[in-house]
Design a protein around this nucleic acid. Structure first.
Length: 567
RNA sequence: GGCCCUGUAGCCUAGUCUGGAUAAGGCGUCAGCCUUCUAAGCUGAAGAUCGAGGGUUCGAAUCCCUUCAGGGCCGCCA
């Protein structure tokens, strides 16, 4: 909690011992009314007086100090004004000192956390839904790092199963021998879509794809070779996309490596008496008494299902990383029940790690015309979208800068285009479903990534143009314009925002904060000339500008977004 | 049928966990601001019975109940 809020609380507490004031201390609706507000209603019963009267009396009793400048009574509210000069003296040098670390907390011991995200099927390219997943997973990883966690970014490739065999089957039957003539994961996806189209024509296709899976499981050489070849295409394509998005994984898991070990869990569960066999011989977990539907873990033909593999993987992660304090799964909300069941079974199995499992559920991404269906091909492709964004950004840049070099143009276009896309998806609370709006997603104005990046670029530009390069001594008392004090308060609250955002694994809180800060800065920019004659004011304002620059950069970094210095 | 999630201006969202003053932004619309630090910006106007009904409370967008609407899930699929 920030120091000034604490000072106000201390002053309040002194006057009334034993009354809980922490939760009631809020912020007035309008900065002119003060920095903190205490509503006196709660004290009414205790003191048997009207709230207004209590406010009046408290205002007289509470002593002002260095941090607390003024107290005003407005009806039942007690409004506190902090000393803005002290605030600036506190906040701005701290940012200058901590630089890229401002906002991070290092108070407690470092812990190890795994974040699994993206986890694609290898039969089709990544789409919009994956983008939301990836942006969320990466940003949450960074937030956890800011809270002094060592994060292991993990990816789990669903690289075996009937769905994979469908692309294989279609390629084998209708595309034999062809080599990719486009990004290889897209090439693989085309065969999957073709299979979906053709499967309506004849029932035997579905059956033959299943036969292919059987051959794969039996280790048929030709099938395995085909699988290897097509999977490599898919992986090559994915890596290209991850590179473009700036994502790196520390650990990769492959379903094809572990699917056969799920059986061990079933054996163990039966032995422990936790899993049961039904009349047909299938093994299931009895979850009904825990308010969940029962879950089959082994089919009556003896084969495992997805849940079995997932259970094994959950365990494997803690074998690979025995010190994990938390294992996070970034997976869409349509699998909420799956994870409730998974975690419950792990608990019933008495796995020590069961309580360390956490499903970071996020809302579905729908298209204006409805749900995305990759089988039908109505998906927004991730690569296409990223490329489109860069193209649009390029156009904008070219309008502003005629003489820009080709490489610089490309780099900046990617920073801005990708920044816009990431911000568009991260500013919305991740738990909510969202409808992808093509027009809003490509906007560079309003509540967008480029809006925030632009504020940063303007800061950089001013710092470059400034006649003074060094800011040593600053008269903080000069920073008294309402636009200045508003920014300084915001800058001071950044560490609280980051901590809160990390605690709740909620990048949207950082995104919202950045919009507030960028807006506050833009207003300051219009009202307070920075580069000017008065050297003292110049220095003071330059310091504010540099702090805004630093905090925007730190904030965007947490979202995985770059901060170009020129736009 | 059961369980879960979501309803806030024409549209998109914040605020809901932890109740507090006149419900906050953006898009779009209308009216302004570039001979001065980057107009990807700023200023102003219009626009909301916070899905509906009840309850708790000095006080409800926020908590509780009912109800309507939309979405998701409930497979020996992943």
């Amino acid at each position: 909690m920030d120091k000034f809020r604490q000072k106000v609380l201390d002053a309040l507490k002194k006057e009334m011992k034993g009354v809980k004031v922490e939760i009631s201390l809020g912020v007035p609706p309008n900065p002119e009314m003060g920095d903190y507000a205490f509503p006196c209603f709660v004290l009414s019963k205790e003191f048997k007086k009207s709230p207004n009267q209590i406010a009046e009396e408290l205002a007289k009793k509470i002593k002002l100090n260095k941090h607390l400048k003024k107290i005003e009574v407005q009806g039942p509210y007690l409004n506190f004004f902090v000393n803005k000069e002290e605030l600036a003296k506190e906040v701005l040098p701290a940012i200058e000192k901590e630089k890229g670390n401002y906002g991070k907390s290092r108070s407690r011991k470092q812990k190890q956390v795994m974040v699994e995200f993206c986890s694609p099927n290898t039969n089709k390219p990544l789409h919009l839904g994956h983008l939301r997943n990836i942006f969320l997973g990466e940003s949450v990883s960074r937030l956890l790092e800011s809270a002094n966690n060592k994060v292991i970014r993990a990816n789990f490739f669903n690289d075996r199963g009937v769905h994979i065999c469908k692309s294989m089957y279609a390629y084998q039957k209708w595309g034999k021998g062809r080599e990719p003539n486009k990004k290889p994961d897209h090439f693989v996806g085309d065969w999957y879509v073709l299979f979906a189209k053709k499967s309506g024509e004849s029932e035997k296709y579905e059956k033959e794809a299943k036969d292919l899976l059987k051959k794969w499981e039996e280790g048929d050489t030709e099938t395995i070779e085909l699988w290897k070849k097509m999977n490599k295409w898919a992986f090559d394509g994915f890596r290209e996309t991850y590179n473009a998005l700036g994502i790196k994984y520390d650990k990769e898991y492959f379903e094809s490596d572990i699917w056969m070990y799920g059986r061990n869990i079933v054996v163990e569960g039966l032995k422990k008496g936790i899993l049961k066999k039904n009349d047909e011989g299938a093994v299931y977990a009895q979850l009904e008494e825990h308010g969940l539907p029962n879950k089959i873990l082994l089919r009556s033909d003896g084969t495992t299902i997805y849940m079995t593999t997932d259970l094994y993987l959950a365990k494997l992660k803690f074998e690979d990383y025995p010190n994990l304090s938390k294992s996070v799964y970034v997976v869409a909300s349509e699998q909420d029940l799956h994870f409730k069941q998974l975690f419950k079974i792990a608990e019933l199995m008495k796995y020590q790690f069961a309580k360390k499992l956490f499903h970071l559920s996020y809302g579905m991404v729908n298209l204006p015309e409805g749900r995305m269906k990759s089988r039908e091909g109505n998906v927004v492709d991730a690569d296409d979208l990223v490329e489109e964004m860069a193209k649009l950004a390029k156009k904008e840049i070219e309008q502003r800068h005629k003489d820009i070099g080709k490489d610089e143009l490309k780099k900046r276009a990617e920073q801005i285009g990708l920044g816009a896309l990431k911000f568009y998806m991260l500013k919305i609370d991740h738990t909510r479903d969202m409808t992808y709006n093509p027009e809003e997603s490509i906007a560079f104005e309003g509540e967008t990534g480029p809006y925030v990046q632009y504020a940063h670029a303007r800061c950089c530009s001013m710092l470059k143009k400034s006649p003074l390069k060094e800011i040593r001594t600053v008269d903080f008392g000069l920073l008294k314009h309402p636009k200045e004090t508003a920014i300084i308060s915001l800058l001071g609250s950044f560490p609280d925002v980051v901590r809160d955002s990390a605690d709740h694994q909620k990048p949207s809180a950082v995104a919202r904060y950045l919009l507030d800060l960028a807006k506050s800065f833009s207003e300051f920019y219009e009202n307070c000339p920075v580069i000017q004659e008065d050297k003292n004011l110049l220095k003071a304002r330059l310091l504010v500008v540099d702090c805004v620059r630093q905090v925007i950069k730190n904030g965007l970094e947490l979202l995985g977004i770059e901060s170009p210095e020129v736009m």
